[in-house]
C-alpha cells in the first residue's frame, strides 16, 4: 500500500446473522482528502464506519486505516484517528478547558501539549471569554465546533465525522465546513457522513451506499454528469430509489 492512502478498504463485509449490513465494499481515501460517505438511514454507513474506527470486527474483507490493519492493530488505529459522532460528545458539566484536558489526557498527551493545543483552538475560535464556562451553557452551534476542535486535540491523521452538523443552523454549518477545509489543508484526512446533500458538494469525493453496497463513488461533479442531473440531491434520489 502506498503512503498516500489514508484509508484503503477491500471487500469489507459485516454480517449480523443472515443480514448483511455491509456487503463487500471497496474504496480508497487519499491523505488530506475530504471523503463524503453518503447513504440513506439503514444503508450500512454507521456499521462500515464502526469497523474502520476499530469498535466492530469485520466479518470478512481487508481494511487499513492510517496504515494499520483493522483486525490486528485496532489499538494503533485508535491512537491515530479522531472521532466525532452525530450525538454531541463533550461533557455538559465540564468546562471547555476541562473537556479538552480530559480528552487530551486519555490520548496520553502531556499537560503542556494539552495546554498548547487548547489555547490554539480557543484563540482560533475566539472563545477566550467562555473557555471556563460549562459546556452545557453554550449554544449548540458552539458545542459542535468545540467538539470538532477537541476531537483534533491529539492531531489525528484521519478524522471520522458521523453526521457532525445534525441539527445546527446553516450559518454554523458553513463555519463548520470552513474548519473542515482548513484541517484538510493541513493534511488531515476527513471521512464524513452526512444527510445534507449540499454538504456532499463540499467533499472532494463522495461514495453513496445503498443496501450495504457502494453504488457510486466519484467527485460530485463527475457524479452529476454521470447521472445527467444538476445536483447531488438528484443523484442521491436516483440511486436511493433504485
Amino acid at each position: 500500500m502506498n503512503n498516500n492512502k489514508s484509508i484503503s478498504v477491500q471487500n469489507l463485509t459485516k454480517k449480523f446473522g443472515n443480514f448483511t449490513a455491509v456487503n463487500a465494499i471497496s474504496f480508497e481515501v487519499e491523505k488530506g482528502e475530504i471523503f463524503g460517505f453518503l447513504g440513506a438511514n439503514g444503508a450500512g454507513k454507521t456499521t462500515a464506519m464502526k469497523m474502520l474506527i476499530g469498535i466492530s470486527k469485520p466479518t470478512s474483507g481487508e481494511a487499513k486505516v492510517a496504515g494499520f490493519d483493522v483486525y490486528k492493530d485496532t489499538e494503533k488505529i485508535k491512537k491515530n484517528i479522531g472521532y466525532m459522532s452525530q450525538k454531541f460528545a463533550l461533557y455538559d458539566d465540564l468546562t471547555v478547558r476541562e473537556n479538552a484536558r480530559f480528552y487530551g489526557g486519555i490520548y496520553g498527551l502531556s499537560k503542556k501539549q494539552i495546554k498548547k493545543k487548547t489555547n490554539e483552538f480557543i484563540t482560533e475560535l475566539g472563545i477566550a471569554d467562555i473557555a471556563d464556562n460549562l459546556v452545557g451553557s453554550l449554544p449548540l452551534g458552539w458545542k459542535q465546533k468545540l467538539a470538532f476542535s477537541v476531537s483534533l486535540i491529539h492531531e489525528p491523521k484521519v478524522v471520522f465525522l458521523d453526521e457532525p452538523t445534525g441539527g445546527v443552523d446553516p450559518i454554523t454549518r458553513r463555519q463548520f465546513w470552513e474548519m473542515i477545509y482548513k484541517q484538510a489543508d493541513n493534511g488531515t484526512t476527513i471521512f464524513v457522513t452526512t444527510h445534507y446533500m449540499d454538504e456532499a458538494e463540499y467533499c472532494d469525493r463522495v461514495s453513496i451506499m445503498v443496501e450495504g453496497k457502494i453504488e457510486a463513488l466519484d467527485t460530485p461533479e463527475n457524479l452529476r454528469k454521470q447521472y445527467g442531473v444538476d445536483s447531488m440531491n438528484a443523484v442521491f434520489l436516483k440511486l436511493a430509489r433504485g
Binding site: 476499530g54 469498535i55 454531541f88 460528545a89 455538559d92 480528552y103 496520553g108 476531537s151
Partner: peptide, 13 residues
C-alpha cells in the same frame, strides 16, 4: 445516552 461512551470506546482507552 449523551454519546460520549462511543468516543471513549474509539479512544485508546
Amino acid at each position: 445516552e449523551i454519546g460520549t461512551m462511543e468516543i471513549l470506546l474509539v479512544s485508546p482507552l
